[in-house]
Design a binder for these strands. Sequence first.
DNA 1: CATCTAACTCTAGGCTGCTT
DNA 2: AAGCAGCCTAGAGTTAGATG
Length: 309
Amino acid sequence: MECVTFFDQVTECDFQMLKDGGYVNQDDITNRLSWNVDHTSPYNGKFNSFKRLCDNRKLVLHGEKVILQEFPSEFLGAFVDVYVLTYLFEGSPMSAYLAKHGYRYNMLTLVDHELKPWADYCDESAIKSQYKDLIKIYDGSMNKVGHQSGKRHPLSVSWYNTQVRESTSALRTLQGSTQNYFKKVADTPAKHNAWTTFCKYQGRLKGERYTKGFVAFNCRATNEHIEKRSMAYLCNVFPNPVISQYLNGQDIKVNSDLYALSEMLQWIWRSQIRRYDPIHLFIPSERMRSLLYLWLDTRSTPELIGKLS
DNA sequence: CATCTAACTCTAGGCTGCTT
DNA sequence: AAGCAGCCTAGAGTTAGATG
């Protein structure tokens, strides 16, 4: 569940105006925004949707000017039990969100139609050894572009921005490698090829034999791409720093590696691997690739978390 | 409105040469 | 020899706009 997102319907100028005009108040402790109620002449105008979000207690001011839209945490308190069905929960922003708002939770799993403590049943080694035979990860010189050195984060959003700003040859190379991968390594026809990058760079990286197989990197919960068997994952993902900072305010960590792994697994699992058919992967980002190797090589999520921290 | 056409995009495959 | 990179081409598919 996406608990916190950016709210950008109201510009900085508009917000300043609303504040100066006394339309909006900010709670001193929670930083939550509320609309100044005036029953004698109720507001009706351009900012109706903003006002409604304030009334629904969904907007929070982060720092001086960033407005975040957040699921009001007290809504959760209205339920006796809330069940969230997910995987790698510790890497999700929602776990940080719950911690920030002081909620506790139990991890459970279904065993023979019964809920059991997750910790007792989280061994995945059997299924992972099956996946190890089905998932073929490219290992060769075309991964060079994603080589990790120092503090650089190749294939991250800011890396892409830098390559374009400084007009380096990296994106051309990456495009060529991806072409070559689908053509010579995976050797699958275009209809079985899927690829992704950040949407801003889709046009720049598209190429022979895979252009039409673009699947958004944050794509989830769809069966549409089940015929894909060769995939190029051209991203290196990180949690949004502003939202992380907001959620981690009270020293609660969003584990960025676990988050990245979870995003990537979601994407890979759009393919035919979900019906246990073999797939080929091209993951030039060294960080993302080694996260996948680590995931395959650990027996359980607790063991994985132990190795990450 | 349907259909036709021209322009364009994409694909599969082939060929060559380079590097390791 | 294997892996990589870059080129070319016919033909298939797509699209926008013109034509009847």
